[in-house]
Structure formats: C-alpha cells, structure tokens
Computed example of a mutant assay.
Amino acid sequence: MQIRVVHHGRRTAAAATATVVDVTSRGPHPWVRFSPFYPHGGIPVPLSPGVTGTSVEAIWQALKVFESTGVDRTLLQATRMTGLKRTERRYGRVLGHRAGLDGSGLLDYETARRRIYLPAYRHVLDHHLSAELAQLRRLATAGPLTLLDYTTNDDVADLSKPLSHAALIRLHLLGEWPGG
C-alpha cells in the first residue's frame, strides 16, 4: 500500500495521480469523521476510569492545565467541532496535561501525547471508524492514496510541530502504530 500524508494547502503533482481524501474537520462525509474534533461520543478519557468524552480534541483540551486554570470537565461533553481549543493567550502558560481528571500529577507534552492523545485517537479508529478504515484500505490497495491534513508530523517525539492525525491513520493502516 502506498499511502502519503500531504499538507492540506499543498497538493502536489503526486497527489494528482492518487486518490485524495481530506480527513480534516472541513473534509466531506464520511472522511470528516477522522477529525479529532468529530464528536463520536463514548471515548474513554485516558487515566480516568469510567469517564468518557465526545471527541479526541475535547479530551485533549479538557486535560490541559494552565497557569490560571486547571482541567475543564465541561469540554468532555461538547458536541460542537469548533471553540474547543484552550489557548495560552487566554489562560496563561500551559503547565502540562493532568494525568487523568482526578490525577495529581502533570504530564509533559510528549508523555501527554503518548498517554492521552494516542490512546484516545486509537480508540476512535478501533471503535468508531472500522467501515471508513476498511474503505481507505480498499482505496490504498487499488492505487496510491493521499491523506490531507493541516500538518504532516508522524513523530510523537517531535514536539516542534503538532502531531498529524492523518499520519496516525497512515501508520494504523500500515500496522505501524507508535509504540506498538
């Protein structure tokens, strides 16, 4: 399978010869369902037994801790795909992500990616997007497949750029999920 991840605004000549799928929050149905902002519901909040959230982004933002404010449990039930981001401009410097809603410790950025973001997104892939993943596999088997995202970073340890969910989809399809 030949699967590439390309920045949404930079469709290349190679993408012109491939099947192109926009998996961003602005993509068409059913591909928009791959967006971390999509409110699937019932996503277990990592490190928080018995608690669920509506979207991966809602979980990620809810567990973020700032200088002026802690976790935001209300985000876990947000059904919108906009207005989820909590920023330093509004809340001050990010201190880390809480190790669970009721955890006492804070996780650094890379550890939070590994212990919060990856498990939450993997749950969505495994439990909410089976049909869409099967369709992407068929497309990739038939010819080159290009996934569009706003970032292309597939390295969890590269903290200089946001992690690409399209890159995670690619790794999942290839059986190369980060950390096994």
Rank of each mutant, 00 (worst) to 15 (best):
Q77C: 08
D158K: 02
P36C: 02
L84E: 03
A15P: 07
W177P: 11
R90Y: 13
I3A: 08
T74Y: 06
E57T: 10
H123P: 04
L106A: 07
T12L: 07
G70D: 13
R115H: 05
G103L: 07
T82F: 14
T52Q: 12
L101A: 05
T82V: 13
T52I: 10
E67I: 12
H7G: 10
G175P: 14
T151S: 09
H97E: 02
V56Y: 04
R122F: 09
A13Y: 06
P36W: 01
H7A: 12
V20N: 06
H29G: 08
G9V: 14
P44A: 04
Q2F: 15
T111F: 05
W60Q: 12
W60D: 13
A62I: 06
P144H: 10
T146E: 00
I3H: 10
P44L: 05
A167M: 08
R86M: 08
Q2H: 15
R33D: 06
H7F: 04
T19Y: 11
G50V: 06
S104H: 12
G105R: 05
R26V: 06
I59P: 03
R122Q: 12
P30N: 01
T52R: 09
H97K: 02
G70C: 14
G100R: 09
R113W: 03
R137G: 00
R137A: 00
P39R: 11
T12F: 07
D149P: 02
H97N: 09
K85S: 14
A112S: 11
V94F: 01
V124M: 15
A157S: 11
F34H: 01
V71K: 14
W31H: 08
V51L: 15
H40C: 03
S104C: 05
L118R: 01
H29W: 15
L95A: 05
T12A: 06
D22H: 04
A134S: 14
R4N: 10
F34Q: 03
A166G: 13
H127S: 02
I169Q: 07
L129R: 00
A157Y: 00
V20I: 11
G53W: 10
T74C: 10
S25C: 11
I3P: 08
P44F: 06
W60T: 10
G105H: 07
T52C: 13
A14D: 12
A78V: 13
P144I: 04
V23A: 01
V45Y: 03
G27I: 07
Y109D: 14
G53T: 06
D72T: 09
L76V: 03
R138F: 00
E57S: 10
V156P: 07
T19Q: 12
S164L: 02
T152C: 12
T24Y: 08
T79W: 10
R122M: 07
L95D: 10
H29A: 15
D149E: 01
R115W: 04
L173H: 03
L133E: 00
R90F: 12
L84H: 01
E67W: 14
L171Y: 07
A112F: 07
Q61F: 02
R89P: 02
Y38S: 04
H128Q: 08
R26S: 14
P36S: 05
R89L: 09
S48E: 14
R10T: 15
S130R: 15
A140C: 06
A167V: 08
V124Y: 15
L147A: 00
N153R: 00
V23I: 00
I3W: 10
E57N: 13
L107F: 05
R10C: 13
V156F: 00
I3G: 09
P30C: 00
G53L: 08
